[in-house]
Design a protein around this nucleic acid. Structure first.
Lengths: 119, 119
DNA sequence: TTATGTAGTTTCCGTTTGGTAACCGGAGTC
DNA sequence: GACTCCGGTTACCAAACGGAAACTACATAA
């Protein structure tokens, strides 16, 4: 019996897979968390550190720089003392919110399943 | 001037962040792609290898095992010759489709922005 | 005077990741 | 008899990732 490769209905992800594209933006550690917390409004560096226990200053800086380069967040230095820096989602960043919400939703289902498996 | 930590409206992600939970499932390289291709119907190992150019057998195996352990996909060995193994999304796995779709959607926007930046 | 807060940067280092290549058995094909 | 296909497994390796800690500068507060 010969096994043939079946044609499936999945759109053939043409030039440069948008899935891979988007995952490269929100792929790093803590990245989705950062977007999640910014979705509630602008936030300062140290506030984000408190929001996300476990993230190091180094990684948080790296993520914020990378997200800024992707055009997902904006960075605004306020002339306060000590100086404070406010990060916020751009219009493009706001587009990520539904994706993040969908992921959170599945996260809940996963946790529920885990609870069942435990029992 | 004293800077105070502002209370934001973001739900405080209580016990064991569902976001992190879900990202640990679809975090590895090629994982979203695998789910994407399975969303169109069951698929064999070698078919997935053809679907996703660039994925190595080692990583594909690792992802499929891990997704199976998470309860996201099912694995069925068919008594053909040579033996074939069919992977499919479970009910839980189907729940991931909206999340994947949302990510793909943003991926398109990101690519559009890129084109604009180029110009 | 000393300590604190802000927003990082830098260095070092261990772990993880993912790619490459070789190899496996069994059945069918040429 | 040799070769291919299928679905993997294993060993090896370089690169990337991310954590910890120390350090910066400036200004205010105790």
């Amino acid at each position: 019996m010969v096994l043939r490769v079946r044609k499936n209905q999945a759109p053939p992800t043409p030039e440069g897979c948008p899935l891979t594209e988007c995952m490269s933006v929100l792929g790093g550690a803590w990245t989705p968390n950062i977007i999640w917390y910014l979705s509630a409004g602008p936030r300062r560096f140290s506030e984000l550190r408190l929001d996300i226990p476990g993230v190091s200053a180094k990684v948080l800086t790296a993520r914020l720089r990378s997200l800024e380069a992707s055009g997902v967040i904006s960075r605004e230095v306020k002339p306060t003392s000590p100086p404070s820096v406010e990060y916020a989602l751009t219009d493009l960043g706001e587009e990520l919110i539904p994706a993040i919400n969908a992921i959170v939703k599945v996260g809940h289902k996963l946790k529920m399943r885990e609870a069942v498996v435990q029992a």
